[in-house]
Amino acid sequence: MNGSAESVPGTDSAEERVLAVLRRTTLEIVPEVDPALFTPDRTLSDLGCNSIDRAEIVTLAMEELDIAVPVHEFHQGMDLAALAAIMRKQL
C-alpha cells in the first residue's frame, strides 16, 4: 500500500483499511489527484473524479476487498467516510 488514509474519530482499523484501499484505487484510476486532498470529509467528485471514475474506483476497491455492496446502497454525494462505512459493513 502506498500510504494510509488519514484517521478520523470513530473509525476502526477495518474502516481505516477500506479507506486505504479507496485511496490507492483512486490514485490508480485518477493519478492526477493530489494525494493530500484525499480526506474522509471529501467526496470523490471533490477530487475531480467523474461518474465513470467513481464507478471504476468503487468496483476496484470492492474487488480488492472481496466484498460486493448492493448498488442501491451507493448514493451520490457520499463523502469518503460514508463510502468506507458501507463497504466496511460487508467485510
Binding site: 465513470i52 464507478a55 471504476e56 468503487v58 468496483t59 476496484l60 470492492m62
Partner: peptide
C-alpha cells in the same frame, strides 16, 4: 474473468 468471481467486479468502464 473478473466478473466470474463476482459480477460486481466487472470493470466500470467495460460498457465503454
Amino acid at each position: 474473468a473478473r466478473a466470474e468471481r463476482n459480477p460486481a467486479y466487472l470493470p466500470a468502464r467495460y460498457a465503454l
